[in-house]
Design a protein around this nucleic acid. Structure first.
Lengths: 354, 354
DNA sequence: AACGTTGCATGCAACGATGCAATATGGATG
DNA sequence: CATCCATATTGCATCGTTGCATGCAACGTT
């Protein structure tokens, strides 16, 4: 293990406290002493012990990001933006994935990772709002995604209902009438699929098109394979649609590939629209029309939320709140931030290439 | 902040030590006492303080993964596999990205994140072997990728030279003769590009094909845009190749798109081969031939390496090594593990679809 | 009755860094 | 020469937890 303040102090012939003063750039140190101490620091390669500092100060400068899947392009891109946004605040962002396992979501929130960070950004998958609310007293938490914690936890998302409606509208505007939806997840409580199917139905209804349950395809996950499977079922079931709105770009890319394999021309025979605007979609052939959430905005506003909470009493680990202090300083109410989105029309719903 | 052992002890009317004994499941606690303490623990929602435990015990159960880009599909997939492998050891894996910035690589190694973890897995980008070696005494470190630390640090990689040669051989076997390479990075010291271009040249040489410098395309990064740009230059420069080996699948997907945009048929006019076997490549049209590293194997063996080091004296933070102990217990020498790879032939170099 | 044994509970110290308050210097002033 | 001040340096206590050693009963054995 590395050298401690004590080791450096012995070497420099001063007290532990003086070394600490040098390390923390306190002004009241004689130039000669400072020089000697700095040399000892250098020689022993001193690095402050993170655990001790954390214990004492209650702040780590770390922020956690908890997402279902690191290898999903959408979350990967978001994580990357969050890492960069965190740097502007002087924080280091650490990422972990839950695989949608509720036990793991709990573990990361309450366990060690959730303790050493000053704040958490989380995209919940399986944890119920009730469980999320239970830990309102721990480190500041910002939720991403459609899951709503009843206004008790800061929350950043896009308006999925409106976005899904816009996407569906766009397909209707192309003259399509048999518009399928891929990505229904009735067993999941996290709200994403529910809101997107609601927007889809709403747009169909507004255009006077009847909803056909056979066109609403459920999936178990949001991967390319699930999209391909759903598309094959649609095509083999004799319910061939003339357009499809997929609740994620990954689903759309899988569906696209299945449609091409089936001999369909996209967009002539089938228009395809996704959701997320991941990079793959821009380079696919044909390139993918999609709903683009303002990822940069989501990242920045999520961290701005955290920063706001952290400016407050700190509520960190170290210092216990003074019981004599007037605790009338109510924390600000939970915010519900809606980030921007826009429909990006590309080849998969436009004309021929170009 | 949450309740401490002291708070629980007061509530249960026992000593701090006894509460600790209950929390840690020590046998020597009377059933009645245990019950009372457990109730107090429950009522106060006690959670052990991570910082204190870490300071005291020197172990956190955390493992860090430091990669250049979280949003690169290859690293995303690898990170996901590492998270899962870590769970089998009872560790929690935290991920951070450096963007290839050497300062940030240093910061993550030496700074707080590098201190609280029991071990680190890192894919270095810009840090020189010398700098990596400098910290051989800190937490156990396993390197991923082609960067070689002169046998002083555990290291897991694939045989990039052989893999690149196989890929090139495959293209030669299709009858192609003007085979381009995309992904040269002369200014980078991390070895990846160097090894792959070496394998490429070696295969060409063995087949008696002269190397054409105009076919070796440099890139600044390994993204789709870079691949597309390089391919456009090749096509517009009058040096049109009949095959291209890209040093990453992302480069290949970009090159593929650029080629299709240029009116080429793939693989008829141009065969395309990538490296990494990311999921996008499997669903692209045409699907992408690629070198598939055994990612699961890489993840498992990297963590096995760490586990091996951690079984040793621990060298963790807390306990200072006993100076009286016979220190003849030399740590095992650094291992150099070569993971498997195989060429996966798909549509982009095979015949027509199917 | 004296002794060792066992089971249970506790006290002390330490991990490394830092806030606070107190001390040791030197010099300037009355 | 005593006094005071400012600057420079230090000791002590503390954060929450756990290793080690000890205290203290009640029990069984000789």
């Amino acid at each position: 293990m590395g050298a401690s303040l004590k080791d450096v102090a012995m070497r420099a012939g001063v007290s532990v406290r003086t070394v600490s003063n040098v390390v923390n750039d306190f002004p009241q140190v004689a130039p000669e002493t400072r020089r000697r101490v700095q040399q000892a620091l250098e020689e022993l390669q001193y690095r402050p012990n993170a655990a001790a500092r954390l214990l004492r100060a209650g702040r780590s400068g770390l922020v956690g990001l908890v997402i279902p899947e690191i290898d999903s392009p959408y979350f990967g891109e978001l994580a990357s933006l969050l890492v960069q946004a965190a740097q502007q605040y002087g924080w280091t962002l650490l990422v972990d994935q839950t695989n949608g396992d509720p036990d793991r979501e709990r573990l990361l929130l309450d366990g060690l990772p959730g303790q050493i960070v000053d704040g958490l950004v989380m995209s919940p998958w399986a944890l119920s709002p009730a469980e999320l609310r239970r830990r309102a007293d721990a480190v500041p938490l910002v939720l991403l995604g459609e899951q709503d914690a009843a206004g008790l936890i800061d929350h950043v998302s896009v308006d999925s209902v409106a976005a899904a409606a816009e996407a569906t509208d766009h397909l209707i505007g192309l003259g399509r009438r048999r518009i399928a939806a891929i990505g229904v997840q009735p067993h999941l409580a996290n709200g994403t699929a529910q809101q997107r199917i609601a927007g889809y139905r709403q747009a169909l209804g507004a255009a006077g098109i009847a909803c056909d349950p056979a066109l609403e395809m459920p999936v178990t996950a949001l991967h390319r394979a699930d999209g391909a499977r759903a598309m094959r079922e649609l095509l083999e079931g004799g319910h061939a649609p003339d357009a499809v709105f997929c609740f994620s770009d990954q689903l759309a890319l899988g569906a696209l590939r299945a449609a091409l394999d089936h001999g369909l021309a996209v967009p002539r025979d089938l228009a395809v629209c996704g959701f997320d605007d991941i990079e793959d979609g821009r380079y696919a052939t044909p390139s993918l029309t999609t709903v683009a959430p303002d990822k940069t905005g989501i990242a920045e506003r999520a961290l701005a939320c955290l920063a706001d909470r952290l400016k407050r009493p700190a509520a960190g680990a170290g210092r216990r709140p003074d019981p004599a202090a007037p605790s009338g300083d109510t924390p600000p109410p939970a915010r519900k931030i809606v980030a921007a989105h826009r429909l990006v029309v590309r080849e998969s719903t436009a004309g021929r290439r170009g």
